[in-house]
Simulated assay, not measured.
Amino acid sequence: MSETLPAGADFDVLVIGAGPAGLVAAILARKAGAATALLAPPAEPRDRRTIAMLGVSVDILKEAGVFDRVAADSAPLRTMRLVDATRRLIRAPLVEFHASEIGRDAFGYNVPHAALVAALEEAAAAAGVHRIEGTAASIEPEADAVRVVTADGAIVTARLIGAADGRNSPARMAAGIGTRVWSYPQSALVVNTAHELSHDDVSTEFHTPTGPFTLVPLPGRHSAIVCVETPAEAERLAGLDDAALAREFERRAHYLVGRMTIDGKRQVFPLSGLQARKFAAHRIALIGEAAHVFPPIGAQGLNLGLRDAAVFAAVIADHPRDPGAADALAAYDRRRTGDVTLRTSAVDALNRTLLTSLLPVQLARGIGLFALDRVPALKRAAMRQALAPHL
């Protein structure tokens, strides 16, 4: 719920954007001792998307005080399975990653988006984050603070802005931070399903010539499906009736979970990529899709955004006198550059290996996955790095 904005409102930190990454950033900033506000429009109606929270992301949600609130509605991801369904001359072997191989009960949990956001909003209010409903009409960095004027004319100043305002981030533009942007000849169709056989807590990603077809476990005999296709085919699939779409999903899943039924609305998203040239400038730090966007492969997107939020709060704790000072921004940029660049490059490369017809590239991909499958030490190292990177 929005609070009345005090006259001449001034904060240590203002987070713009109330998606999961923005909410976590605001909660952790407040826990770090900063007077914190959150500026965002009124909450929109919840959809039924889910988010795979992996490794350190679960720890971050626990630190924010929300994981216990969403655990009962979430499904554990105990095994991650990669299947080469390209039918090409050179194909990678089937690879399964088991959490038990690195001493974990699960790699993470598939969490309903609506439940997560609701829990985060409650936690933000309980932590003392000042919620301001609205949008930023102007964002003006100054020497000692950033001056934000909302659409209804209110003025807010803060020593540090957390820009969690999406891929078209006005805050990023106000900071003068450029981006590298690219596109893919793909769209993702996302929908929930029910099915007759158990998924056994296994997330299965079929690699096809047009992109991944992924089944991510939900509680019970339900799964979220992410089907990456050409834009025309994604729209065609989205236009099928429920029975026809379910039959198509059964075929693409090789009947792994038996007969399916569609359980909810379909959503289609064009795929693109974005990476900011730097991650902080002029008292503005980029969080989530303001900093990075890439295809839904390996469940890396929001997990990367939560790590942004955790580092954002850690830098605030390290610079309590002025969290937006130049040395604080330099520390944030330095600590996010490697992680973001590595994940963005890896996901982009894997996606492009699926789309290419070049045999050397297919061979390299196959050899890499074969090595992961057959060299236990390498496999364990890869799993640990994917789940708990150094922050």
Rank of each mutant, 00 (worst) to 15 (best):
I51A: 10
I51R: 08
V56E: 11
E63R: 11
A71Q: 13
R78D: 15
V56Y: 05
A72M: 11
T79K: 06
L54K: 12
M53S: 04
L77C: 05
D68E: 09
V66C: 02
A52G: 02
S57L: 01
A71C: 06
M53C: 06
L77V: 00
R48H: 14
M53W: 01
A75Q: 13
A72H: 15
M53D: 05
T50A: 11
T50C: 15
R48T: 14
A64R: 09
G65C: 13
A52F: 00
L54T: 08
V58F: 11
G65M: 11
E63P: 11
V58Q: 12
E63S: 11
A52V: 01
A64N: 10
D73C: 06
E63V: 08
V66Q: 01
T50Q: 15
V56A: 09
L77N: 04
R49Q: 02
P76R: 07
R48I: 12
G55L: 02
S57K: 04
A72D: 15
G55R: 02
D47W: 02
S57T: 05
V66M: 02
K62H: 15
G55E: 05
I60L: 08
A64D: 12
S74T: 08
A64H: 06
E63K: 11
L77H: 02
E63Q: 14
R69H: 01
T50D: 14
I60G: 07
A64E: 10
R49C: 01
D59E: 12
A64T: 08
A71S: 09
D47Q: 06
S74M: 13
R48V: 05
M53I: 08
S57W: 03
G65V: 15
K62W: 12
L54W: 13
P76G: 15
V58T: 11
A52S: 01
R69I: 00
G65N: 13
D47S: 04
D47H: 05
R49Y: 01
A64K: 10
S74H: 10
L54A: 12
L77S: 02
R49F: 00
A75H: 12
V56M: 07
V56C: 08
D68Y: 06
S57D: 04
R48F: 15
